[in-house]
Design a protein around this nucleic acid. Structure first.
Lengths: 194, 194
DNA sequence: TCGATACCGGACATCCCTGTCCGGTTGTCG
DNA sequence: CGACAACCGGACAGGGATGTCCGGTATCGA
């Protein structure tokens, strides 16, 4: 028998290939359709039976955590460079389109879940590092804290998600996104004390 | 027979009471659970059969439009007062919790729908009026446009929706919301030219 | 070579939401 | 007073997603 990708069923050891295919498909789907995409669709994209998907990832959360864990690895690599600024971070959010919103969704909706909480910690740590760096360089208002950057990311992510939804006049939404970004840049650049 | 509200089935003329009950239930549900709440739940809340709900409002959109049309009436009354500022408008968004987000959702997701477009126009008009007033009073940066306020409302609404979701540490989320609001206030107060 | 084993894929039962349809009830009019 | 008509409520079929289960297949060890 051959599966959808033309690979023969290799029995007991399809190796890690199957798991990786699922992760890749999940990342793409989460990014395009949001966190609520049917898992069956992900399985189909990965060329894998639903059984395999549920065996590797018992539920949606497990899959999502795996995807974002991987994703944060990449972000941390970028942030490790000294030249990375808050603005770069926000660029990243906008580029990843719906992936960042999905992460934000996940974090807020399941922050009590033992598997999700560490993700939140990682995100917070990333924000801390970049804010500290920017504040030292004067790129950001003196009173800006990591939590402010997180708030900005949440807001921007939501708007970006809308803009990449399958619908409607992307022109208006792109305009909205640009304005939102400008507002946030302005705010972070000159945030007064409370 | 008596219905859930103890009113007898009055046959051909239950009057407008039924319609109003549905609208009230819908408003409350949309506000608490978002735009995607099952219509059957709304019908139950209203003490009305699904048949009646679908007779009055052929689909979810029709119901949503009716709810928000009514809602915008109220907002317009508030805005008509000369003393209403952009900040007041944002306050309104925060107070209405998830209702505003639901409206924003609806507007972006179905902006091409002939029934929804007018809602968008009304919102835009409201923003125009208030921005013009605030700009004259110097309450807002010279380069702030109505579209900027709309972007701000969208962002704030999303965050507010999260904060009123049934889940998790409202403390953190409230903090996020406050920070977001502060960012937006700061941005609108001193938005530089592009 | 041949059986045991572990994993794979997809069929399937289940659940929930949607939107329709129909019997029942109650005012109204002749 | 009786028949009609309008409206009401809830049952029900359709569609889709979820998570489970089982027959099938490739590898490994004897």
């Amino acid at each position: 028998m051959t599966d959808a990708r033309g690979r023969a069923n290799r029995g007991p050891s399809a190796g890690p290939g199957n798991r990786l295919a699922i992760l890749a498909a999940a990342r793409e789907r989460f990014a395009r359709d949001g966190l609520a995409v049917p898992l069956s669709a992900i399985a189909k994209d990965a060329g894998v039976g639903q059984g395999s998907l549920y065996r590797h990832f018992p539920d949606r959360l497990a899959l999502a955590v795996a995807v974002f864990d991987e994703n944060l690895d990449a972000v941390e690599v970028v942030v490790a460079e000294d030249s990375t600024t808050v603005a770069d971070l926000l660029d990243l959010v906008e580029q990843q389109a719906v992936l960042a919103p999905a992460l934000v969704d996940l974090m807020w909706q399941h922050q009590r879940d033992a598997r999700v909480a560490p993700l939140g910690e990682r995100v917070r740590a990333i924000a801390e590092v970049v804010v500290a760096r920017d504040r030292a360089a004067g790129l950001v208002g003196e009173h800006v804290e990591a939590a402010d950057v997180l708030a900005a990311i949440s807001m921007l992510a939501d708007l970006t998600a809308r803009a990449s939804s399958p619908n409607a006049s992307s022109l208006d939404l792109d305009d909205q996104r640009r304005r939102a970004r400008r507002l946030i840049d302005a705010a972070l650049g000159s945030l007064p004390g409370r």
